[in-house]
């Protein structure tokens, strides 16, 4: 279990901002800024953050759609960045992705069965193709009769199942789930989350599960990382994370999730963050969160806190003043 499948080492992803007639590079959007993560075999790493925090960019660097500006990504101990095109093609079999939007992630002019068969054809695994596709459809809970239907004939949840079947087709070891349930109706979210969990057990999969919702993550992740402006703010195993979350941003995220319990909702103490997300082109100096942090001091404006263990072993926090347990118990315990 403890064998590292994916290691991300100090990855930076900076996109140039080009301006003017001559397309001069004026600045860089620092979408991902010095992120290091490890995902062990068979576990689920949840990455949480708001829009613009760089979580989707990070996902795209892992599957090799983007080449990071610097840093290294290791899969099964080997760097994926110095692979040639052919080796990369081989690697793609092991790392697959499930997308957020079940509407735009399927080719509207291809039948469901063909969509699932496409990766198999790309790797010339055409033996018993139709049977294999039907197996996959069965695995994700689609009927064999759906084989010839077009994507628009399915509902959102069913389309997401097609997307999952497509990702499973090549027997990958790692699946990156980029907000797989956030575009779905509330009543089908649970179906898809449960399906992903069942598949993980059955097929011994490893997930990187990206979401903006900490409550979804709680149900699926073994390890959680919170990102803000391209950086990891807090990272820990799930249990310690939800019990002893101590980064002010994590706590703000937790307290911003409305509870489905009106009385607790009225009593609970909230950290409502002031202001808005700063531009990733000009991130604040010092701690990137200081502009919105209720506890920021002068030191936070100047020095960059490092991501280090505070409290529980392996519970990493990037903050000078991590919140103590008493201070936030009223927010998280409900």
């Amino acid at each position: 279990m403890s064998e590292a499948l994916l290691e991300i080492r100090d990855v930076n992803m900076h996109f140039p901002i080009k301006e003017g007639v001559f397309q001069k590079t004026k600045n860089h959007v620092k979408a991902v800024n010095g992120v290091s993560l490890t995902v062990n075999k068979g576990e689920t790493l949840g990455i949480v953050g708001e829009s613009g925090c760089g979580k989707s960019t990070l996902a795209r660097t892992i599957v090799g759609l983007l080449e990071p500006t610097s840093g290294d990504i290791l899969f099964e101990g080997k760097s994926i960045l110095d692979l040639n095109k052919k080796q990369m093609h081989g690697l793609r079999r092991d790392i697959q992705m499930v997308y957020q939007d079940p509407f735009s992630s399927l080719n509207p002019r291809m039948k469901a069965g063909d969509i699932i068969a496409a990766p198999l054809k790309a790797y010339r695994m055409t033996e018993n193709l139709e049977q294999r596709v039907k197996e996959l459809m069965d695995l994700v809970g689609l009927k064999a009769a759906d084989y010839n239907k077009l994507p628009h004939q399915f509902s959102g949840g069913q389309r997401q199942r097609i997307g999952i079947a497509r990702a499973l087709a090549l027997n990958p070891k790692l699946i990156i789930c980029d907000e797989p349930v956030s575009a779905l109706d509330v009543s089908v979210q649970a179906q898809v989350i449960n399906l992903l969990e069942d598949l993980q057990k059955e097929l011994d999969l490893t997930y990187v599960f990206i979401a903006h919702d900490l409550s979804v993550i709680k149900h699926i992740a073994d390890k959680v990382a919170v990102m803000y402006l391209g950086k990891v703010m807090e990272m820990s195993d799930s249990e310690s994370f939800y019990k002893h979350a101590c980064h002010p941003y994590t706590n703000a995220l937790l307290s911003a999730i409305p509870l489905t319990d009106p009385l607790k909702e009225k009593e609970r103490q909230r950290i409502v963050l002031k202001g808005e997300l700063p531009s990733p082109a000009n991130p604040p100096t010092g701690c990137v969160f200081h502009t919105r942090c209720p506890f920021a001091t002068e030191a936070c404006k100047q020095d960059i806190p490092s991501l280090e263990a505070k409290g529980d072993a392996g519970h990493l926090v990037s903050c000078f003043y991590p919140m103590n347990v008493e201070k936030k118990s009223s927010i998280v315990n409900h």
Binding site: V186, Q189, A190, I193, N194, E197, D213, L214, S215, V216, K218, H219, I220, A221, D222, S238, E239, Y242, L254, I257, L259, T260, V332, H334
Partner: peptide, 12 residues
């Protein structure tokens, strides 16, 4: 609904 006060990995 996924809940914050659920057990970790609690099945939905």
């Amino acid at each position: 609904l996924p809940r914050l006060d659920a057990e970790a990995h609690e099945r939905l």
